[in-house]
Computed example of a mutant assay.
Amino acid sequence: MAEHAGTWHGTWHEGAGHESTVRIGTSGWSYDHWEGVLYPPGLPARDRLAHYAARFDTVELNASFYRWPKEDSFAGWRRRLPEGFALSVKAPRGLTHAKKLYAPEVWVDRITRCWHELGDKRAVLLVQLPPDFARDDARLDYFLAALPGWIRVSVEFRHPSWDDAGVYALLERHGAAYCIMSGAGLPCVLRATAPFVYVRLHGPDRDVLYGGSYPDEDLHWWAARIREWRAAGKDVFAYFNNDGGGNAVRNATALRRMLEGPPPG
């Protein structure tokens, strides 16, 4: 097992009767430095998503964290993305970092209207909490209760105080996924709290987030974990966030190929 990978904590029930799906993609898609890796030189930025969607079946939208798109943008993605493609979206920093989930009603209403527009192309709403946001069960519980039950949500915790059995139980009550992380200085806790698993791979570099390329040894380890989740009937969404040098594209492609083939003997 790769040294950074952490310890297996999940409790699974076999034979759930659900044919699980696994989607592997990247965090973001419009990077100039992906020319020659994913995009042919000179490809207009407006054509990058279509080119990406011809190769992958999911992506995590990160620009929404800085500026939440309008409803017609979500409707446009629903029309433009191919059948079977699923878009995960990062929640706005106005909700997660400025307000730290306090009084979330206005944001929940905006997100819900946009999620309706995304239709059958919607995957998971990623809610990344800031490193200075310490554990507050009541606030998290209120926020999750305010979200419509049909919106799949995953919460990424950056403050260590959230690593607690009570928090996992709270997520389970709401059917929200604990976001499993891999990256420098981040705890890699393999805990499943929802019918789906959400994984963000921020890079193997021990000192710098988003840096480096995962070696095959690490990717095989993650492939084995994904096979276990899939066997347990869990849908899996995994996104590589180490975009530098096109590493995310290469790692996502390699992991998908490992999962398409037979497990190593």
Results as ranks from 00 to 15, higher is better:
Thr112Lys: 09
Ala231Val: 08
Cys188Val: 11
Leu209Val: 14
Thr11Met: 13
Glu172Asp: 12
Leu61Met: 15
Arg257Leu: 07
Gly17Tyr: 03
Arg191Lys: 15
Gly233Ile: 08
Arg79Trp: 00
Arg191Val: 10
Arg158Gln: 07
Lys121Arg: 15
Leu186His: 03
Ala238Tyr: 03
Val155Asn: 01
Arg79Leu: 10
Ala75Ser: 11
Ala231Thr: 10
Arg122Leu: 09
Asp216Cys: 02
Glu172Val: 13
Lys121Ser: 14
Leu129Phe: 08
Arg122Lys: 15
Arg46Tyr: 05
Ala254Arg: 15
Lys100Met: 11
Arg23Ala: 12
Gly244Val: 11
Ala177Ile: 09
Asp32Gln: 14
Tyr168His: 14
Pro195Cys: 08
Arg250Cys: 05
Ser154Leu: 08
Trp222Met: 08
Phe237Tyr: 15
Ala98Gln: 12
Arg200His: 01
Val89Phe: 10
Arg225Gln: 14
Leu118Gly: 00
His13Val: 13
Trp115Asp: 00
Ser154Glu: 09
Val22Pro: 04
Ser182Arg: 04
Asp207Lys: 14
Arg200Val: 03
Arg173Tyr: 03
Phe74Ser: 03
His4Ser: 14
Arg152Asp: 05
Val167Asp: 00
Ser73Gly: 07
His220Tyr: 02
Thr58Gln: 07
Phe196Lys: 04
Ala98Glu: 14
Arg139Pro: 07
Leu144Phe: 09
Ser64Glu: 01
His51Ile: 00
Glu3Lys: 15
Gly94Trp: 09
Leu140Thr: 04
Thr112Pro: 04
Thr26Gly: 07
His18Phe: 14
Val89Cys: 09
Asn247Asp: 11
Gly212His: 00
Arg93Tyr: 09
Tyr178Cys: 01
Leu209Asn: 10
Tyr31Cys: 06
Arg257Asn: 05
Arg139Ile: 06
Leu144Ser: 10
Met258Trp: 04
Pro92Val: 00
Arg250Glu: 06
Ala103Glu: 15
Ser20Asn: 02
Ser30Ile: 11
Trp34Gln: 06
Asn242Trp: 03
Arg93Phe: 05
Asp72Gln: 13
Arg110Asp: 02
Leu125Gln: 11
Asn251Ala: 03
Ala86Glu: 12
Gly36Cys: 11
Asn247Tyr: 09
Arg48Val: 11
Ala86Ser: 14
Asp132Cys: 03
Arg200Tyr: 04
Val127Gly: 06
Glu228Gln: 15
Arg230Val: 00
Gly149Ile: 01
Asp109Tyr: 02
His174Val: 11
Ala54Ser: 14
Ala86Cys: 10
Gly203Lys: 04
Trp162Val: 02
Trp162Met: 07
Arg110Thr: 01
Val22Lys: 00
Arg191Thr: 12
Asp205Lys: 07
Arg48Trp: 12
Glu19Trp: 05
Gln128Arg: 12
Ala169Asn: 08
Arg256Val: 06
Ala138His: 11
Arg250His: 13
Pro82Ile: 05
Asp164Phe: 04
Pro92Tyr: 04
Tyr31Trp: 11
Gly15Glu: 08
Ile151His: 08
Gly265Met: 06
Pro131Thr: 02
Ala134Leu: 03
Thr11Asn: 13
